[in-house]
Amino acid sequence: MQTCAEHLPIEIWLTIFQYFEAHDLFHAFHNLNNYFNQILASNYLSFYVRLRETDNNHLQNSISPYWSDSVLNRIVHLRSLVQSRSYYFFEFLHWHVNKLIRLQSLSIKIYSRDAPYILFICQALKQLNVLEYLSLTCIPNQILLKAILTIPTLHICQLILRETTTIINQHFNVNSNIKQLLLIYLGNVNYSLINLFLIHTPKLKRLEISGSHFSFDQVSIFDKQLCTLIKLRILKF
């Protein structure tokens, strides 16, 4: 008996498609036949998207198969792979952030040349109502850190921090719901920044700090704040 792919239950294909990146998925199955088009259009199918520099044409044409509303509102994971022209990613957010109603995971790299987009990124973060995971590579500043700490649904946060000379005020009226925090320093360690996060993350359960310039001997600088984190279970340096 000959078996065709179309004979498999749709539930199996939905499970298989969860392992595909959205571009690869559409390249392989879009317009293959009506059966697979129906699966791709299913509201039960969510997407993982890696945005690349070659996607700039799609950013300007929101009715393309990739960025139709029916696709945008099913994106669950979004990651930027753009480096030399990172404004493409910010343009994508500008045009589509209000359609990313299911986005739970976001990974962004912000370079020094992207400073003009910082305020916009902060505004975009406020519109992501179900965001649970954030990975951000950046030069930290007051506005950006406050925006991160005020995301009510954020539970896991990874910050890859470049060196900064900006003085950041530790005292502002914000308490975050972050439960897992990973701080990776690419340059000299800013211990006052660590202290800031400890002050404003009372629900923290896991804390990891790493970097070539991080010294365990300096932990005493913020050990008083560690003692106030009654839910902290894992501490890793």
Rank of each mutant, 00 (worst) to 15 (best):
R79G: 11
Y44R: 12
L81W: 07
S215M: 07
E6D: 04
S112A: 09
N61K: 11
L131A: 09
N31T: 14
I156N: 08
K179Y: 04
H27P: 00
N169P: 03
V71N: 00
V49G: 06
T166D: 10
N195A: 04
Y111S: 11
D217T: 14
E53V: 13
H30F: 15
F47T: 06
N141F: 02
I139W: 06
F222K: 01
Q2D: 07
I156Y: 08
V82Y: 01
A22P: 02
I63S: 15
F120T: 04
N57K: 10
Q18R: 03
S212H: 09
L32W: 07
W67M: 03
K126D: 12
A22K: 13
I156S: 06
I160E: 13
L45M: 10
C4Q: 10
L159S: 04
K224Q: 13
S192D: 14
L103A: 14
T3P: 00
E11I: 01
Y44D: 14
L196C: 09
S192F: 05
F92S: 04
P202K: 01
D55E: 03
I209N: 05
L154C: 03
Q104G: 09
E53T: 14
Q60M: 10
Q104I: 02
K99F: 12
N37Y: 12
Y117G: 02
L119I: 08
F47N: 02
L229H: 04
K146I: 09
H58C: 01
N129W: 09
F47H: 14
I167T: 14
I199P: 05
T150A: 06
L229F: 01
H96W: 14
L14F: 04
N195P: 00
Q170A: 11
S86D: 08
T153K: 15
N173F: 12
H27C: 05
L45S: 13
D223E: 13
R233W: 01
D55G: 05
S68F: 00
K146C: 06
Y191T: 04
D69F: 04
L119Q: 13
I16T: 07
P152K: 15
F222E: 00
L235R: 09
